[in-house]
């Protein structure tokens, strides 16, 4: 499912116009992006939480050539699945 399909599904589910659905999907993901850019935590009950993790610089290897390369320090969002979602993807 991509963003467009998400918008169509929300339009139908919430009974709103397509442009409203598009705005809301945008607000949702923009809010999350902005929070992560500011290194804020995100907590969406039932779905997931995120926090920005700092990774130190390390010496890695190019898996193709075996060459050593220096990996600079970086930040990445760390995703943690919410309880409800975790249980739902495991339902048999």
């Amino acid at each position: 499912m991509n963003k467009l399909e998400l918008i169509s599904a929300l339009k139908k589910e919430a009974d709103i116009s397509k442009s409203e659905a598009a705005k809301i999907v945008q607000i949702f993901f923009d809010s999350m992006s902005d929070a992560l850019i500011k290194a804020e935590r995100i907590e969406i009950r039932g779905l997931c939480s995120f926090f920005v993790k700092n990774y130190k610089s390390y010496i890695g290897r190019n898996p193709k050539t075996g060459e050593k390369v220096l990996i600079n320090p970086k930040k990445l969002p760390f995703f943690k699945c919410g309880k409800e979602l975790r249980e739902r993807v495991n339902k048999i």
């Binding site: 929300l10 919430a14 809301i24 039932g46």
Partner: peptide
């Protein structure tokens, strides 16, 4: 609306 969106994703 927000609950619907979360439900669609889940």
């Amino acid at each position: 609306i927000v609950e619907s969106l979360l439900e669609i994703i889940k």
